[in-house]
Amino acid sequence: MLTEVKNLIKITFLSTKYAIMREMENKVAFIMNVLFMILNNASFILVWVVMYSIKDNINGYTINTILLLWGIASGTYGVSRAFFRGAYELSNKITDGKLDAFLVMPKNVLIQSILGVTPSAFGDLLYAYILLFISGITPYKFIVFTLLLILGGIVDVCSAIIYNSLAFWLGRVDSLADSLTGFVTMFGTYPDTIFNRFVHILFYTFIPVAFIVFVPLRILINFNITDLLILLGGSSIIIILACIIFYAGLRRYSSSNLMVARI
């Protein structure tokens, strides 16, 4: 069992390494992508500069809080898209029968299908650390931040897996899945305190931004055990749910009696 996991990690590592090598074949384009993404994200801070020129506290969020919010949002986006791009293109892989290629390999289908590298996401990741640096970095904060990004990134990937897995039952859902992952990204860049209770419930359920951005933010600013437990509990549920839903869908894919356009 342990060797199986070790081998899986080895393959994941090799696969990601080769994908990054492919993206870096054109070094100039790669660096341009990264730099422009940083600029792209930074320009959005202008919005907050204008907002905060009107009022210096938006229901509990100061401009520093916004920087950290964006740091976590951008960082988790970076982690998820930089290494697990496949998860965001999963629904089309399902409807186009591309999972077949993974099914003939003696390795875990889910892991194989979610791997993929997006160069610009490294820009998002770098930007996250820039923001952390601006808002005041300490070794403690750096370590906690990094751990939160990794966990948040994984939860983001799992939410994408769940949305995209709807394709197993509903056919072509790429616009829907893209919209849903878009909502996760978008909500994560605005203060959660401006929304009402109903929306907050949404953040802990169907659009799990709470576990990706908001609870980690609270932990980063003001560590407390309750938030940590909520984060770990919620994240675990989402990760397990993603696996259950994907494999249930995969069973359906293989026993399928519905003629989906597959060659």
Binding site: L103, V104, S254, S255
Partner: peptide, 13 residues
């Protein structure tokens, strides 16, 4: 043909 091969290789049940 393809359907049969898929069943032989475990892609389809």
């Amino acid at each position: 043909k393809s359907t049969t091969i898929k069943m032989l290789t475990g892609i389809l049940y």
